[in-house]
């Protein structure tokens, strides 16, 4: 965090400061940052984990990206038996692909010509980090969390996604121990494509359900 601030402010005139000047934030930390820092330091001091274990944990989280989810979706599109196993038990399906679903289970919800699924956590910001990486800021915003459950079609339109009136929109509120992943519809015109080629069509937003997969025009 401090390091980011430092980089942001110093870029472009890097020669103005001493090469070994300490990395310092220009502005005081906010309340929650201070609280998080204090808790982290206490836990390290009390021996619950080491600073290196904490760093490695953050590093592991940051190594997860939507590419993992895209690989799982592309396999489901090209392997009907895998698709069924994934829908039956998301955790086992992910494990087959070498992805550890850290939480209790992953509920995979499939988009069809009659149903469109979209994911939210109205209470906080639960997100399938292990298959998609860290959530975008909008996913955590009060506006998305309160509005998508109340008026999903209008919110989807703001994302550029128009759901036909005859399709059912199904909102999934991740209120407790499950996490959710949308299995988007495979675009027409991709018949015979390999899983590797299909992966490129599967983006983060299509797996949250605010967009649909389409062929690049």
């Amino acid at each position: 965090m401090n390091h980011d601030d430092h980089e942001g402010h110093e870029h472009g005139h890097a020669h103005d400061h001493e090469p070994h000047a300490p990395i310092q934030a220009k502005e005081p930390e906010g309340h929650y940052q201070l609280l998080a820092d204090a808790v982290r330091e206490l836990l390290i001091e009390k021996g619950y984990f080491t600073a290196d274990e904490h760093r490695a944990f953050i590093e592991r989280i940051d190594a997860r990206t939507p590419a993992l989810g895209a690989r799982i979706v592309a396999r489901a599109w090209t392997d009907p038996k895998f698709r069924q196993r994934l829908l039956d038990d998301g955790k086992k399906g992910c494990a087959e692909m070498g992805v550890d679903v850290v939480v209790a289970n992953l509920v995979v919800v499939e988009n069809t010509p009659s149903v469109h699924n979209v994911i939210v956590c109205t209470l906080c910001s639960c997100y399938p980090v292990f298959v998609l990486g860290r959530p975008p800021d909008w996913y955590k915003s009060a506006a998305y969390r309160s509005r998508v459950v109340r008026d999903p079609r209008a919110v989807l339109r703001e994302f550029g996604t128009d759901i036909a009136p005859e399709r059912e929109v199904r909102v999934h509120d991740s209120t407790a121990d499950m996490r959710y992943l949308v299995l988007p519809m495979r675009p027409k015109g991709t018949e015979g494509w390999s899983a590797e080629r299909l992966e490129a069509l599967v983006t983060r937003d299509t797996m949250v359900g605010v967009a649909e997969c389409r062929l690049a025009s």
């Binding site: 459950v149 008026d151 999903p152 079609r153 009136p165 005859e166 399709r167 059912e168 929109v169 199904r170 909102v171 999934h172 509120d173 991740s174 209120t175 407790a176 121990d177 499950m178």
Partner: peptide, 10 residues
């Protein structure tokens, strides 16, 4: 929204 729209919650 649509008449068959749903919300699912744990």
């Amino acid at each position: 929204g649509g008449p068959s729209d749903k919300v699912e919650i744990e």
